[in-house]
Design a protein around this nucleic acid. Structure first.
Lengths: 194, 194
DNA sequence: TATCATTTTGAATGTTCATTCAAAATAATA
DNA sequence: TATTATTTTGAATGAACATTCAAAATGATA
């Protein structure tokens, strides 16, 4: 049997970048073909169709995204400092020249009205974002009771979504940091003047 | 000269609904033609092209949006209670069956990577959202100094963006209320048990 | 080497897209 | 009523879209 000539993960990374920048309807399969160097037939053979490719992109993005939070929080001296690092990570990401928010958030917003399938792209994004909140809640339960952990996790998610949108404003990093200190005063923010 | 047969504002309202639900690339001019009942030529005569129609939709939406905040805040006994009402208004909106976040926010997210024009749709959305923050800051300056007003206004915007995204989760109204009480404890939230 | 399941090629398909424009209809004005 | 500026009609245009498929290439296995 013929060998697969391309690296699946690399093709998906290209798809994440394109879909993440221009959205589902805003990205054409022609663009995918151009940046990956593959032929139309190869992509359809490997991923079925546009939706199939998008879904794999979504999976790969969200897996890495959740892994990243886990890594950052668990590398920190304690949970609270870890959460601060994870949030500062989001601010740092917003300073990139080609910043494009969060792929899951963008998918949710773009496809909410059209993709009503129970295991479609919208439902998948919603689920993964809910899992992220669960992850934060589980970290918080080391220190707080269940109810307070839930409220604080929701508050963190509101701030994450807020940062993901607010980040489009240029030179907003300092404002966002001040906003986090205002809205999440129970976290151990380091003084930027030290 | 021939009389204009359609009501411009109503056509734009249809455009706001369609563009707001499915986005710029996700909405076709054919859909606009179907819901408005106009002919292709009439729409192009009146609005130039798709972008022109979208821009008028954005203008009309953002005008009403800022008017609404003004009305709600100024109808309240004081600024802080008014801001609470404006935020609860956003939670209420998220409970609608066909909830589709905020048209300005969606435009910003969809077009950030492709529309780099200085007076394009993306730049316009960004500007109007910045104006909203300025509006909140101006209300807060009745009570707080300039620096604190700015930080609190940013915190409010982070929460607004957060709510606009979080609202896609079904049955999230109570969680969002708890999140606001957590993140904006300096506002006079009413006890829901009274 | 011959067989065969698999992958790759890339032109072709049919649909949908935004947009145009000559012609017809309209109504204010002369 | 005749003129004229404006609006409406709706079929036509060409580009871009996602997707298909028969044929060719590939390489593991017999």
């Amino acid at each position: 049997m013929a060998k697969v000539l391309f690296k699946r993960e690399e093709v998906i990374e290209h798809a994440i970048k394109l879909f993440g920048q221009h959205g589902y309807t805003g990205t054409s399969m022609q663009q995918i073909i151009e940046v990956t160097g593959l032929q139309a037939g190869s992509i359809y053979h490997a991923f079925g169709n546009k939706e199939g490719l998008y879904k794999e992109a979504l999976k790969q993005y969200s897996d890495k995204s959740i892994q990243r939070i886990t890594r950052v929080v668990e590398a920190a001296p304690n949970v609270q400092l870890g959460i601060c690092s994870a949030l500062e990570d989001i601010i740092d990401a917003s300073m990139a020249k080609d910043y494009c928010s969060c792929f899951l958030l963008k998918t949710q917003i773009e496809l909410a009205a059209s993709d009503t399938s129970e295991d479609g792209l919208y439902a998948f994004s919603l689920k993964r974002l809910a899992q992220t909140e669960e992850l934060y809640k589980s970290y918080l339960q080391v220190q707080y009771d269940s109810e307070e952990s839930a409220a604080k996790a929701t508050s963190i998610m509101l701030h994450i979504f807020g940062l993901r949108v607010y980040g489009y404003q240029k030179k907003s990093a300092q404002k966002m940091r001040a906003g986090l200190v205002q809205g999440l005063p129970w976290l151990p923010w380091s003084n930027p003047h030290n």
